[in-house]
Design a protein around this nucleic acid. Structure first.
Lengths: 154, 154
DNA sequence: ACGTATTACCTGTCCGAACAGGAATCTACC
DNA sequence: GGTAGATTCCTGTTCGGACAGGTAATACGT
């Protein structure tokens, strides 16, 4: 029975893990009124303050069109405010609202929970090893996708 | 600089790997005129012959709504034919068309390429280890998402 | 200074994924 | 036989992701 998985067991595992991980993240984030991906934008804004969209796209390695709509939705939800950049007529500055600060702790807790769920029963020592393995996979994929590689490693 | 990754290094790595892996798969599959996910349906149909949609949903652990539209698109592309199930008025049988057979080798090659790209520079011995690690992650996520577990392991 | 990139953002489109809800059909039980 | 519940599929909606334009505003080279 040459099931689908036989064609590429590791690729298939990556696929399934990705879906489960995203599903769990989505379920946890729903408590906070966020969708997967939005929390990354918020976390970066909380950490680094007002940003132009282009910077967010760059840092999060996202897409300009996706970022436009994600920021629009975050704005509509009241987590983000947009003001025109005074020094560049093309750009808009995105900043977290005061109301969004209430989310911050919640999102941090969610990510801790997500990390804990993913690495459950994995002693601290092995996590380093696990991370190293994942980074090897990532580096492989970065080189094969012709991604403009991150500064370090690879 | 508590960058976003610091909140959950492994979750973040999973997220990035998933996106890269999907991107690479998408790029390779585009040559065959398929979108990521559609190839899984086709591969299962090639392996197991005509299926009802509910079976495809079950085997691929997918969503009924997603499957409806995916099959519709595959039908429109000429890779799949749909006939009403003679024994059950609710069901439709999905089967690969003769034209789709030309894709089969191409899709197999693409998955080999994807698997090779993902595990590049990883000796055969370590791949078993890698797969074991990924399956641990998957089992963690399955239990945490309350997924109706796969029959084996976990 | 002027014309040509380049940049920043937006919109439209198509796709997979998830959830909610609905219609037709089948099954089981009374 | 007839009703209640389950199954099967479809549609609508919202979201992230990717790609292809399109429009401003800026930067650059002559």
């Amino acid at each position: 029975m040459p099931t689908t998985a036989a064609y590429g067991p590791i690729s298939h595992a990556v696929f399934r893990i990705a879906r489960l991980h995203r599903m769990l993240a989505g379920r946890l984030l729903a408590e906070a009124g966020l969708h997967p991906g939005q929390e990354l934008v918020m976390m970066h804004l909380w950490d680094s303050g007002p940003q132009r969209q282009a910077e967010l796209v760059d840092v999060l390695d996202s897409d300009s069109a996706t970022m436009t709509r994600t920021v629009q939705r975050l704005e509509r939800a009241g987590f983000v405010r947009r003001t025109p950049d005074p020094t560049d007529g093309r750009a808009t500055l995105v900043e977290p609202t005061a109301a969004s600060q209430a989310l911050r702790q919640q999102v941090c807790r969610i990510w801790q929970e997500l990390e804990e769920a993913t690495t459950a029963g994995c002693p601290e020592v092995e996590r380093g090893e696990l991370l190293r393995v994942l980074e090897t996979l990532e580096c492989n994929l970065i080189t094969r996708t012709g991604r403009t590689a991150q500064p370090q490693d690879c």
